[in-house]
Design a protein around this nucleic acid. Sequence first.
DNA 1: TGTACATCAGTGAACGCGCGTTCACTGATGTAC
DNA 2: TGTACATCAGTGAACGCGCGTTCACTGATGTAC
Lengths: 201, 201
Amino acid sequence: MKRDYHHGHLHRALLDAGRKLVAERGVDGFTLREVARQAGVSHAAPYHHFRDKAALIESLAVESFAALEKTLRDAHENSGTSPTERLCTLGLAYVRFALERPAEFTLMNRPELRSGHPERLEQAARAAFEVLIDSIRECQTAGLVVEDAPDSLALVCWSAMHGLAVLLLDGLSSQPANSPEQVESLARLVTGTLLQGLLTR
Amino acid sequence: MKRDYHHGHLHRALLDAGRKLVAERGVDGFTLREVARQAGVSHAAPYHHFRDKAALIESLAVESFAALEKTLRDAHENSGTSPTERLCTLGLAYVRFALERPAEFTLMNRPELRSGHPERLEQAARAAFEVLIDSIRECQTAGLVVEDAPDSLALVCWSAMHGLAVLLLDGLSSQPANSPEQVESLARLVTGTLLQGLLTR
DNA sequence: TGTACATCAGTGAACGCGCGTTCACTGATGTAC
DNA sequence: TGTACATCAGTGAACGCGCGTTCACTGATGTAC
């Protein structure tokens, strides 16, 4: 069934194989040669589509941030009525995203794996961040959240959720937080506490 | 001046060289051979003191967590009068610690670099975490902070500060947060917001 | 104090490893006429 | 429709790399008598 010689969609196929590979073997098991292998192509073929390994990883990360953005947007749009409720949902969605694809999440956050031209990546990351900023603006417009700079407050929220995700992934929590339910309740505790701190008084 | 042949304190010397090396070249530039080189010893010598590379890294991480614990204790003891003020100081100290030794901090949080027997490491990490828990208990005793489980609340705090540190180190903040002053004020914003969320109402 | 010996902490050569990357190549594709 | 040719996307052999680790070894140290 497979086209002989010319592949046709190797660029895409490499990205797909790469995403699968990183999920299966983690960031450290990720090699260009194995990506090529899994895409059914010689190990030199990828060089026609990516300058080097770092470039492939960067493209993967860009796509991952786009997926994160979509996840956050969906979560935001399909959640409860109150703006603050929606903000909390965003936090939960972030942690879930991280825990559902731990290695991919790790790869997104390892700048040293990527190539030196970070514009695309930063733009994709920024786009995901904007969802959070918008949600905070919404809360402020409704008079529910203090009137600090939205992007500063967003960074506060992002820090808390990112920290929780990273701690859970690195297994440092020293908490028996392995079951999805426990993770969920921890995430709720973090978002809840944070929200209390953000509310107008 | 150097003892010929027998070194005398190679175990210690390797740890010191390792700490220096990771600071200079980062986690990726860290090789056993280079550690040996910098300790002025052949590349096989370390194997008389550490089972393998992972074991050396684990020992480094254990020491780093001990240093973190000390940093946190000092910060806690030498800070303001109110328990909540002291709690915030702890948060600032954590972020400062991370930003002052970025590579070492990264190494502390990369379980995949370490050997398979994590007891010592977990104990050291736990000891640092206890400082935070104690501080929260103090706040609760003074009736200032809500009466949730102290270790859960501590994890909330840790998440927030850890997240901020990691985001700053990975340069993902999308904020121009490079000067120490900006970092400081971001950290204050995070701790402040969090504290508001923790206060009794 | 001197000698015999076990133990220990170094040395330096060697191995295997799989990787990322380059290279000259070749087969396939598309286009101009 | 057929032919000539440029371009492109693959192939597979090869290179260099420095690493982690092992090994047989040897010089130094400490102890028993």
